[in-house]
Design a protein around this nucleic acid. Structure first.
Lengths: 80, 80
DNA sequence: CTATATTTGTGCGTATGTATG
DNA sequence: ACATACATACGCACAAATATA
């Protein structure tokens, strides 16, 4: 079981964890973050919640989902 | 057309049918159950629903999916 | 040896229904 | 009324391994 903060949406808390992993290099640029299904399993959330996380990270410009392939970490501007 | 009971999920009803066939020997141990595509066709369900059925049966220990080969009926302990 | 078909695995996209706060 | 969360159910495409023609 995961102790989510009750004050904020779970998707937001998951998104922050993934974002942190992107920033600390756990998920390097041009590599895929865990799939929606993996996120579901690791964080014990539903599919829509996991997808919301990915969509948020994509909207924020951290990742780009590629159909049939995965969701890839975008390189920073100075790493382009 | 198939008359599914509206009260329960379709995947559950399909899984029960397959499980019954395993138990009555229609699908003997070490032989494959119908592929996902065959399940789709026979029960007129979508791929994800058919896969859900297989995953459920695998989680319950009735079958083991083998990539590229099929999903095989596991032998019971006393038949091992 | 090559080409095709089969089968599971893995991705994303979409919609609906239900429940909760 | 709305946002959040989950379950169900449909769709598509491609990858990888295997079997077969």
């Amino acid at each position: 079981m995961i102790n989510w903060e009750p004050e904020r949406p779970i998707w937001e808390q998951v998104a922050e964890i993934i974002q942190r992993r992107i920033e600390d290099g756990t998920y390097p640029p041009r590599t895929p973050i865990p799939s929606v299904e993996r996120l579901q399993q690791e964080f014990e959330v539903g599919r829509n919640t996991a997808r919301h996380v990915v969509k948020h990270l994509a909207d924020e410009g951290f990742v780009r989902p590629v159909p049939s392939l995965g969701t890839f970490v975008l390189p920073r501007a100075d790493e382009e």
